[in-house]
């Protein structure tokens, strides 16, 4: 339970091998998310939105934070997943779990198809292409009114109870638990990835794309894999938003979604897994509290906060947290 009660790991090799072990603060974090059910029963809808946006941010973190591939159009996959899940539910198949899986696979397939282009691009060209894909999908969804409802959004989405038993209630208990469990499972996958040889190779590509091939890394292959995984994860998040709200707004494909998720990730801290989740919570709670009362200052405030984070608190909330822990450990170590 406590750090000092654990047997000391003998060598750096032992410690790296054990790096993926579960930490006490992770247990605490996930228990905390369950506590929301009892502590804030009136905020469960906001809480499920946070879980969903957190998953979306997690998908971007794998891409941007770990692999260093900047995407300014990640909403393409989020929105695509949302529409796929919404449309199949509207046209007769409202079973949520299979709907979510289908949506995730579809978004992943879209990512796989796009990824060969991504491997060849850098910098501004990469930004433009990722943004372009998102704009393209937005326009397509806007035009295909017969399928998507266009500007009015996709109405008439009917989601069946989970396992035929748990109906999506008005309070949002089912929705929150559903989103939370999916987020948790995806987090486990992301965690595995980060601690795998593949995860190391992503960080290696990010840190030095000139060296990576010189140790035998096939960068094209790695980009294709991570892009596909990330797109699928974003698609699952999109499916969750469609299913828990039983509605798909055209806005899921908007540029604003793409930009916001990037802001959320940078706020929370990139390359840390928890960064996206913390960023989502901070951003959405702040918006919930401030945007309604001071809408005119909301974006101004977010802009200022972002500038402050980038200039003074590199690594976002989690980065600051890291530094605090390190400082505290150093102090404790000096006192020993």
């Amino acid at each position: 339970m406590f750090a000092f009660a654990k047997p000391a790991l003998a060598t750096p090799a032992d410690r790296l091998i054990a790096a993926a072990r579960w930490r006490w603060y992770e247990t605490a974090f996930w228990l905390g998310t369950l506590l929301v059910l009892f502590a804030f029963p009136g905020y469960l809808q906001l809480a499920s939105q946070i879980a969903i946006v957190g998953l979306f941010a997690l998908s971007l973190d794998l891409l941007m934070g770990y692999a260093g591939i900047i995407s300014l159009g990640h909403a393409a996959f989020f929105g695509f997943g949302a529409y796929v899940a919404g449309i199949i539910a509207k046209y007769g198949w409202g079973e949520p779990l299979s709907g979510m899986v289908i949506a995730g696979l579809s978004a992943g397939l879209l990512g796989l198809i796009v990824s060969p282009i991504i491997t060849r691009l850098h910098g501004i060209a990469l930004l433009m292409v990722t943004m372009g894909l998102c704009v393209l999908l937005f326009e397509a969804a806007n035009r295909a009114v017969w399928l998507t409802g266009g500007d009015d959004g996709l109405q008439g989405v009917e989601i069946w109870p989970i396992f035929g038993t748990f109906t999506f209630d008005l309070l949002g208990r089912t929705a929150y638990l559903y989103a939370l469990i999916v987020l948790f499972l995806m987090f486990l996958v992301a965690r595995r990835i980060v601690h795998s040889p593949f995860g190391l190779s992503l960080q290696a590509m990010r840190d030095n794309p000139r060296r990576a091939p010189a140790i035998g890394t096939d960068m094209g292959e790695r980009v294709r894999i991570v892009y596909t995984i990330s797109a699928a994860m974003a698609g699952v998040a999109g499916a969750l938003i469609a299913q828990t709200t039983q509605f798909v707004a055209l806005e899921v494909l908007s540029f604003q979604r793409s930009a916001e998720i990037m802001i959320i990730l940078i706020l929370g801290g990139t390359g840390r897994l928890f960064g996206g989740l913390i960023g989502a919570a901070v951003f959405m709670i702040a918006r919930d509290q401030l945007a309604t009362s001071y809408p005119q200052y909301w974006y101004l405030g977010i802009g200022a906060l972002l500038v402050a984070v980038v200039m003074f608190a590199r690594g976002g909330v989690m980065g600051g947290f890291d530094r605090l822990v390190r400082w505290w450990r150093a102090r404790a170590g000096a006192g020993r």
Binding site: A19, H195, P197, S201, T217, D218, R222
Partner: peptide, 23 residues
């Protein structure tokens, strides 16, 4: 240690394994 571990995994052709941790 991470960098050299990755290099060794690449040599063995395990660099793309994404569902197995270093354990």
């Amino acid at each position: 240690l991470q960098a050299v571990t990755l290099a060794i995994c690449e040599r063995r052709g395990h660099g793309a394994r994404w569902l197995a941790s270093l354990r």
